[in-house]
Design a protein around this nucleic acid. Structure first.
Lengths: 154, 154
DNA sequence: AGAAAATATGTGTAAATACACCTATGGCAA
DNA sequence: TTGCCATAGGTGTATTTACACATATTTTCT
């Protein structure tokens, strides 16, 4: 059964939580991901997939676990994300010399898709820079990196 | 078939994309969500659920679509997130006077869970503040709010 | 009043995410 | 050499997320 929340309690909860880093960063993550998804639509890539292809392009050939660490992402998440990209023919997953490991590389189609998406991403980013300026974008990137370090130093 | 990425192309892609707002904010979102999830574990709430209960506590009684707008979240996402919280007895979803709409309110159990979680969240946040300082947290919150506005003004 | 438009929500489907648990392989020490 | 433990990865399951499409009401206009 629903209850009425006393006004003092509302205010107390709000004071304590309105500056919640997790809440606000997740909110921004949703909004920005949607924005970039729409911007990347002509390329057929979602923003998450674009991010993945960039990471692979920069590090390939790289093993799965190492790539997961670089992306601050759970290894098992990466397994399935990469599977989808492999199904789409954008990258290749092959066993390494150590037969336990999987080596991730771009295919030609993956490289083509990535190069097509790069200017679309740049345009989306330019829209944000127009609104907030390079300075503040730099500050943002700098601070969130510090936050990532902070939450991992635990 | 995998291809080798020329070093110049790697560098070009990396230059263009390493400052990608979407990539970096999603990365931070993953890291921070995990950190808060662990911190909230004793309360039985995940950070997403905590966020939801806070929003409901602050706005209840509120209709679903309006709550979705406040949270910058897709309406249909909220439908299922709220369903789970309802199943757990933490909130109540009832039809409003307009029989199309659903009104969301906290239950007593929801209020109890929320109050138990508030100090856990505060402790998690304190850990971050210790590392980056109040100043930079304020900057972060300010800038991401600007980014949210920027991507919605389209 | 009746039809059309607007509003509020739900469902099917799929991607991104992570945790607990399981398998396969490699390295090292007794 | 064999047996143990560490390392690399995959699977089952569940949550968070959103889009396309469908349904139920309400409002508005003629």
């Amino acid at each position: 059964m629903a209850i009425e929340i006393p006004i003092q309690m509302r205010q107390a909860v709000q004071r304590n939580s309105s500056r919640c880093a997790a809440t606000n960063i997740r909110k921004a993550s949703r909004a920005i991901s949607q924005f970039y998804d729409h911007a990347l639509e002509p390329s057929g890539l979602k923003s998450t997939q674009f991010t993945m292809l960039v990471a692979v392009a920069c590090h390939a050939p790289i093993a799965l676990t190492l790539l997961a660490e670089r992306m601050v992402m759970d290894r098992t998440t990466l397994t399935r994300d990469l599977q989808r990209l492999e199904e789409q023919g954008l990258l290749e997953i092959s066993p390494g010399t150590d037969r336990r490991s999987r080596i991730i590389e771009l295919t030609k189609a993956g490289q083509t898709a990535l190069l097509a998406a790069v200017p679309l991403r740049a345009k989306a980013q330019a829209h944000i820079v127009e609104h907030i300026g390079e300075e503040r974008l730099s500050s943002l990137l700098e601070i969130i990196e510090e936050v990532v370090v902070a939450v991992k130093s635990d």
